[in-house]
């Protein structure tokens, strides 16, 4: 891999919580245009690593680069404006707002209107077409006026993805997008992720191995805060240390 292809890079990332190393000296490079997954047994540090890369946590040591520029100490809202947008494990929509309003809130920030407290919200109607397009792209057409908090779980997930796409992110970070979804919804959301990741880079944390195998170009396997393997699904699934990590986890569970 030439370094030019790497859009998001972590070097020597370490995060300790009171002496416990959740992530320990991890080097990771996400290739531009790829779907890259983080997997590992429970407690392996996937979510912590994900939170480091999305700036929810600051690393204890190590550096993070987005397109070659260091973002180690940038704020989460700043990296969002640079085109790296995350989704959340628990479906994160704006519960008491309508479906259309949810997407428009994401669309309005780059327009510079968001601070205008003296203007009627009718000035946001110019964003409606784009918002409806995004909603249609995730299968939420016609649901404009529904209250987000009253949507069924799978549709909330779809709404969250539409809201994320509203920022047209270069790097899409998805935290366990299948968490809490039923089998039918998993198939739908998998297809959705495949569709929306075209032309972007996607980093995915996911437990569901079938989904990971189906979507990923590259997989990084973590165990006890360290990288134990990296490669395509067919390569890593054969490795004895990966199998052992998962079997070990199964025995615990």
């Amino acid at each position: 891999m030439s370094s030019q292809d790497i859009i998001l890079q972590g070097r020597g990332l370490t995060k300790s919580f009171g002496g416990f190393f959740a992530v320990n000296g991890v080097d990771i490079g996400v290739r531009r245009g790829a779907i890259h997954s983080l997997i590992g047994p429970n407690g392996a540090g996937k979510t912590t690593l994900f939170n480091l890369l999305t700036k929810i946590h600051l690393p204890s040591s190590g550096q993070i680069f987005l397109e070659g520029a260091e973002i180690t100490s940038s704020k989460p809202q700043a990296i969002a404006r640079k085109g790296m947008v995350r989704s959340f494990q628990i479906s994160a929509c704006f519960q008491r707002m309508t479906v259309l309003e949810n997407v428009r809130v994401a669309l309005q920030r780059p327009t510079g209107l968001a601070y205008r407290f003296w203007r009627a919200d009718a000035c946001l109607d110019v964003l409606n077409d784009r918002a409806r397009e995004l909603l249609a792209s995730v299968g939420l057409e016609g649901a404009d006026d529904a209250i987000a908090g009253e949507l069924p779980y799978g549709r909330k997930r779809a709404l969250e993805i539409a809201t994320t796409l509203a920022l047209d992110p270069k790097v899409l970070l998805l935290d366990e997008p299948m968490a809490g979804l039923g089998r039918e919804d998993i198939a739908l959301v998998t297809a959705l992720i495949r569709r929306i990741s075209k032309g972007r880079t996607t980093l995915l944390v996911e437990h569901n191995m079938k989904v990971v195998a189906e979507l990923s170009d590259t997989i990084t396997v973590l165990q006890r805060g360290e990288v134990i393997a990296e490669g395509a699904y067919d390569e890593i699934s054969q490795l004895p240390e990966v199998r052992e990590a998962y079997l070990g986890a199964d025995e615990d569970g």
């Binding site: 995350r86 959340f88 994160a92 008491r96 309003e101 809130v105 205008r116 919200d121």
Partner: peptide, 19 residues
């Protein structure tokens, strides 16, 4: 207002608004 929409989004889920 547009500001009001942002304000309500922060009320509903501040972490998401930051993201």
């Amino acid at each position: 207002s547009p500001f009001g929409h942002t304000m309500r989004s922060i009320r509903d889920n501040e972490t998401r608004a930051i993201s």
